[in-house]
């Protein structure tokens, strides 16, 4: 039972505490086998902890960096209703980043360290946010395609074996239910609008479709960490399975919108009971991942600027709290 888990755990374990570890390890294996949850104070293999820290912090960074491409349109939203919706959505993303940083912090890494990893490039975030948003229709495409893909990815994570991660995801999924719908409706309004608006919508969907499909990660036979994550009940479905599920959902939705998905190979496969679709350009994926996307440098620079420019504010609030604490202590002592 769960041999891969045991191997990963004992590889990392320091000598001398083997007995305690063995008990913890057995308990950990039992939790996974019974589909129970692992909680912060439980023993867990070092590699499990490391994988979670990496995945949850990447996820948090993605929410925070993901505020930028949409924040780009808050001041120019074409109606006050859309402005309010977009502000609420981007604000939600800050909130979701915070929920996830909280979850990661229970694994023993603090937020300042995670920020540092993001700003120095040691930690990654979803490559999708390195694409730019030159048109308003991109607010629709991000909601419909990017959030749509994210939701496909995230719903199974509500059952992730690590308790704080699963709980954060439950809250996030609940709040995100409006995100995809508002994006779909932006595109729907555009497609029912003027020729210029329809063109804007189609052009945007052309740009976002393939990158959104790549959000599920590389094909299964090229995804080295997937098997381990599935054994640990962190990941519940394979990249390709989720991608297929997403395409199956998109095709009828695109018909409602009246947009054309930019893939001539999409067609229903009666035998499989799924839509077939064309190969994706994984070279582009790896290019963006390697830092050569349209906005990699800008996204991190903006984040750094906000963090650096806010330092004096954070320090002032800390100094005020410290001074007040000292004052209180002084009063008690005297």
């Amino acid at each position: 039972m769960a041999t891969s888990t045991s191997t990963a755990g004992s590889d990392i374990a320091a000598p001398g505490i083997a007995a305690a570890d063995a008990a913890g390890e057995a308990r950990f294996a039992e939790l996974l086998a019974t589909e129970s949850r692992v909680e912060p104070t439980d023993w867990m293999p070092a590699a499990y902890r490391k994988t979670l820290v990496r995945q949850i912090s990447q996820h948090a960074h993605s929410e925070i960096i993901g505020m930028q491409p949409e924040g780009n349109w808050i001041t120019r939203a074409p109606s006050l209703k859309r402005k309010a919706i977009l502000m609420a959505k981007v604000q939600d993303e800050a909130g979701h980043g915070l929920y996830l940083y909280s979850a990661a912090q229970t694994l023993g890494i603090d937020r300042e360290t995670m920020f540092d990893q993001l700003l120095t490039g040691k930690a990654k975030y979803s490559s999708i946010f390195n694409y730019v948003t030159p048109t308003w229709a991109d607010m629709g495409s991000i909601g419909w395609l990017v959030d749509g893909a994210a939701i496909c990815n995230q719903v199974p994570l509500c059952r992730a074996s690590y308790g704080p991660y699963g709980r954060a995801m439950v809250r996030i999924c609940k709040e995100e239910s409006f995100h995809q719908r508002q994006g779909f409706e932006i595109l729907l309004e555009l497609m029912r609008g003027t020729p210029g608006q329809r063109e804007m919508a189609q052009e945007s969907v052309n740009r976002w479709y393939a990158p959104a499909l790549m959000m599920f990660g590389p094909p299964d036979d090229d995804s080295p960490n997937s098997a381990q994550s599935m054994a640990w009940n962190i990941k519940r479905f394979s990249n390709d399975d989720l991608r297929q599920r997403f395409v199956d959902m998109l095709v009828p939705q695109a018909e409602v919108l009246g947009v054309t998905l930019p893939d001539p190979d999409i067609r229903w496969n009666e035998e499989r009971g799924h839509y077939d679709f064309g190969d994706l350009d994984w070279d582009e994926f790896h290019e963006v991942l390697a830092g050569r996307g349209q906005a990699n440098a800008v996204r991190v620079a903006n984040r750094r600027a906000a963090h650096d420019e806010g330092a004096w504010v954070r320090e002032a609030a800390r100094a005020y709290a410290d001074a007040r604490a000292t004052e209180t202590e002084g009063r008690i002592a005297s």
Binding site: P40, T41, S102, Q105, T106, L107, G108, D110, R111, E112, T113, R314, E315, A317, R318
Partner: peptide
């Protein structure tokens, strides 16, 4: 043993 997320004095603002 304190709450699992406590970062001691390392961070500018403590965790609540």
């Amino acid at each position: 043993m304190t709450s699992p997320g406590d970062s001691g004095a390392r961070e500018t603002w403590p965790l609540w």
